[in-house]
Design a protein around this nucleic acid. Structure first.
Ligand code: ZN
Ligand code: ZN
Ligand code: ZN
Ligand code: ZN
Lengths: 159, 159
DNA sequence: CATCAAACGCAACAATATATCATCGGTGCA
DNA sequence: TGCACCGATGATATATTGTTGCGTTTGATG
């Protein structure tokens, strides 16, 4: 199931957006949504799992007919992550479209070791607890990496 | 301040161990604590920041007089992480000695973007909340990646 | 149109991680 | 003793991921 339909099955997070909304939101913030940036974001939305930078390059190559160089891919991904419409999953060296890009939040990913898919959830209580810890230590948080790896429900049945 | 003295300054986590205790604990579990494994773990304990696999290789080279190949380093680090006496920080591609290896827990790291150091804390409430989320979705958690990047207290004063 | 900054292309490179096979040393056993 | 076995390590090559530097193009703006 591609990311664009995934929210139908996710009971955790009521607020969602789609790729067009994400693009519109970036434009509203004054960001340049170039063809490449839109193409990369679309590719992430239509993927059924997190994509590495080089996966993305190959997928775009098929669509565009030409090879886009690695630096362009990385720059584009950096941009999309800064805009909050995509996110990097550190434990996979891969990227996904954020399904909650209509509001500020810390993405939490459940990454299945069997099927490779990553589901995004949100938990404001966790965010708050972590912020309190950081504050107590005088640590100013700029970015949060919250990833759980394991086995998703469908993959457990088949084992 | 190397990791081996760090606990004196950490008000968060009362329970701590040192490198010798960690080695002893592995032995009790029946794990083979070879010279290489002990050397790598000691290097992590005496480091004042997370070390990449190749950093470790270079440090060990100075001590041992010979180059240890990358695969050996990675195998050793995998072993130490499985034993719970070290941990990988995904957002840095680097490794640290775990300061709470005397009991099971999810490591939480506060990673400073300025000085590069990572302080480990523990938060059982966060662990529990995350486990509940996972359970609700039928997801079986095998591993948790909880990392906050930002700026530590000392580094804020100097900016 | 002229100007300027941001985005992009391109080539080379660096850093991180893995695959594969050979070797070594202890353990158990004929 | 001689030998098969197994886990740990060594060694080489290679794969994957990410970056730097620099020149060119693009597009917004006046
Ligand atoms: Zn998100
Ligand atoms: Zn799965
Ligand atoms: Zn720990
Ligand atoms: Zn710092």
């Amino acid at each position: 199931m591609p990311r664009s339909e995934r929210h139908l099955a996710n009971t955790q997070s009521p607020a969602h957006c789609d790729v067009d909304e994400a693009i519109a939101a970036c434009r509203l913030r004054g960001a340049q949504m170039t063809p490449l940036r839109q193409a990369v974001l679309s590719a992430l939305w239509s993927a059924d799992r997190p994509l590495g930078a080089y996966d993305l390059r190959d997928r775009l190559a098929e669509e565009c007919g030409r090879q886009i160089a690695a630096p362009s891919i990385y720059r584009t991904l950096d941009f999309l992550c800064e805009q909050g419409v995509a996110a990097r999953i550190e434990s996979l060296n891969a990227y996904v479209a954020c399904v909650h890009s209509d509001h500020d939040h810390a993405c939490v990913f459940l990454v299945c070791e069997s099927c490779g898919d990553a589901v995004e959830i949100e938990n404001q209580q966790v965010e708050q607890l972590i912020n309190e810890d950081a504050k107590r230590l005088g640590f100013v948080v700029k970015h949060r990496v919250l990833e759980l790896s394991g086995f998703c429900a469908p993959c457990q049945e088949t084992s």
